[in-house]
Write a protein that binds this DNA or RNA. Structure first.
Length: 580
RNA sequence: GCUGGGUUCGUAUAACGGUUAGUACUCAAGAUUCUCAAUCUUGCAAUAGGAGUUCGAUUCUCCUACCCAGUACCA
């Protein structure tokens, strides 16, 4: 009979979960959901020294943001469950609260001869290590050295009794068997064999905080919680033999979970695993959510950087796994259907921030204009733009909306106006915030004018500092607009281009055709051609006046939205600002 | 050092032992356009090295190199 699939994600609350951890959680979740099983959260906080306040909450919130929702271990309010209930039968799910459980299992191991008490102090161990180092060796507490240490194997039993009764200064160590080949199977890596002679007597119970170590707590809990598969990071592979031995020592071999060790996420350049520093240095987040540590240092998060959780999850899923074909866009549901451990890559995957952006762009494009509009409205409001649902309600008294639905002077716009902006700039954006960068001038007049990357203000300033000729004038000569840019820097435009711009302004003011992008475009083009003006130069000059930049959206797209009045006003204002 | 794991274009990856070694991202060029994007087309670019098994090896075996992890009373 097949046993129910139950997997767990067991983070340690020592800090924020980083994207590698999210991927491990994701793969666990996908595996569980595909098999119709349970995904369990367990908090492994058996190291009282490394506990970080807020880390546990962060981890749960991060998973929640990603849509990785636990079946067990965390309640609806996002709290780790502490008391058993039908849905959470194995509570508490925090190991620090399960302390009484572990003790008896540790003693069981001793009673059966699989473990022993060790009384060596940290100082003694330290000395043994440094002595070994002095003779260029490494001290390992194992089957050969254990007999020369102070433990229940070497000390007379009455001395052991006395030490146990009189002090808390003892640990419990696993008694690793001699010359035994441990044969293991990993769902991703296949068969692995290790000889126990290369292994050490790991501490199972710590004297320091009187709690079990990871190894003991982990095996006991996985057994008690009826975990069927353990999917965890590669850093655990070296301790897999110990874990196998532990299952054997407890007599739990029949229900031992199957193991899958995931490769690590590597930094984009160079070697080594992805770390917090890489993100800071190379400008991408390594955490799902923003995190501020107890010292007050903040690390950016994918959520705050504007990534959609679906894009983040999709990108993460494809880092080390593939569906076996060329597909690369997957919703969570599709991932659940397609996921398979044997398609998981053995080698570590270098994270590629560019691909993450690409995913976000793809997801942004898949979103409806309505949805994006709703996401954009708050961004616009942050920039002092007011958005109204209805153009005629009391709120908008005094506003004079143009045909497109905007009052540029009062900075009030209808939602329809915003949506039309979204619709035609969508393909240029990667993040919702990009809409502002791309199209702010459809909401507010440009404050300064940029010429091929050079701000007008800056150029003028330089002139003032007795530099009559802009040293970058040569740059202009190579550009399309160059012949129409004045060389003396005081004036951006030659008189003839000023005249053209102003005439286009007049033409638009008196435009009688239908006020649509297509008609406006046709009108302007015919007007320019009719005068036999060079299309490119005039258009670029107009764009500079309307958008403040030499590159950007189509002229007709801008004009049709900001309206006649605003267009003419910006053209005039640009002429006076740029040429005064 | 020791133990274990890993190695296909720059990156992520595909390829029952038989393919001109495919795809995506990035990059470059061209087309298009009033500019910039977008889009379309094209292009650049890989089996770490060496033995062996085999008619035939990216694929199996071994050796070497390199990378990663572990080597805590951390997880």
């Amino acid at each position: 009979m097949e046993r129910r699939t139950r997997v767990r994600f067991a983070p340690s609350p020592t800090g924020p979960l980083h994207m590698g951890g999210v991927r491990t959680a994701l793969y666990n979740y996908l595996y569980a959901k595909q098999k119709g099983g349970d995904f369990i959260i367990r908090i492994e906080d058996t190291d009282s020294n490394r506990f970080v306040p807020g880390a546990e909450e962060y981890i749960i919130e991060a998973l929640n943001w990603c849509g990785i929702i636990p079946d067990e271990g965390v309640d609806k309010d996002g709290k780790v469950v502490e008391t058993p209930s039908p849905r959470h039968p194995h509570a508490p799910y925090r190991q620090s609260q399960r302390k009484p459980i572990y003790r008896k299992y540790a003693e069981q191991l001793i009673a059966n001869g699989y473990a022993y008490y060790a009384f060596d102090t940290p100082e003694e161990l330290e000395k043994a290590r440094s002595d070994a180092e002095a003779s260029k060796e490494t001290f390992i507490y194992n089957q050969v050295t254990r007999m020369s240490m102070r433990n229940s194997l070497t000390l007379p039993s009455d001395e052991v009794e006395r030490l146990l009764a009189e002090t808390t200064g003892w640990t419990i160590r696993f008694k690793m068997p001699v010359d035994t080949v441990v044969k293991m199977d990993d769902l991703i890596r296949g068969h692995i064999e290790v000889n126990t002679d290369t292994l050490d007597d790991k501490v199972l119970w710590k004297r320091a905080d009187e709690l079990p170590t990871y190894h003991l707590a982990n095996i006991v809990d996985d057994h008690l919680m009826e975990i069927s598969e353990v999917i965890r990071g590669e850093e655990w592979l070296p301790s897999l033999p110990l874990h196998y031995m532990l299952y054997k020592a407890f007599g739990w071999e029949d229900t031992m979970p199957r193991f899958a060790h995931l490769s690590l996420l590597l930094k984009p350049v160079g070697n080594g695993k992805l770390s917090k520093r890489d993100g800071d240095k190379m400008g991408f987040p390594v955490f799902p959510l923003r995190w501020t540590n107890p010292e007050g240092e903040t690390s950016r998060g994918y959520r705050e950087d504007g990534y959609f959780p679906e894009a983040f999850v999709n990108m993460l899923a494809m880092l080390g796994w593939n569906p076996g074909d060329d597909r690369e866009m997957f919703s969570m549901e599709e991932l659940i259907g397609a996921f398979s451990l044997d398609k998981v890559q053995k080698a570590g995957a270098k994270f590629n921030p560019e691909k993450a952006k690409w995913y976000n762009r793809e997801y942004l494009r898949m979103k409806s204009d309505e949805e994006l509009t709703d996401l954009l409205v708050p961004v616009l409001e942050e920039h002092g733009i007011n958005i109204v649902e209805c153009p005629k309600c009391a709120l908008t008294a005094g506003a004079e909306f143009n045909v497109a639905g905007g009052d540029l002077e009062k900075h009030i716009f209808t939602k329809d106006y915003v949506q039309s902006v979204v619709a035609f700039t969508k393909e240029r954006a990667t993040f919702v915030n990009d809409f502002w960068t791309i199209a702010s001038y459809l909401f507010v007049a440009p404050r300064d004018f940029e010429r091929f990357g050079i701000k007008a203000g800056a150029a003028v300033e330089q002139t003032d500092q007795k530099r009559p000729v802009d040293p970058r004038a040569k740059v202009y000569d190579d550009t399309l607009t160059a012949p129409y840019l004045a060389k003396d820097v005081d004036k951006f435009w030659k008189p003839e281009i000023v005249e053209m711009v102003l005439k286009v302004g007049d033409f638009i003011k008196g435009f009688a055709g239908e006020w649509t992008v297509e008609e406006v475009e046709k009108g302007i083009e015919e007007f320019i051609k009719g005068n036999e003006w060079p299309m490119g130069k005039v258009m670029n000059a107009i764009r500079l006046a309307l958008a403040g930049s030499a590159s950007g959206l189509g002229i007709a797209d801008i004009v049709a939205r900001i309206g006649k009045k605003e267009t003419a006003a910006r053209l005039e204002s640009a002429v006076s600002k740029l040429n005064s």
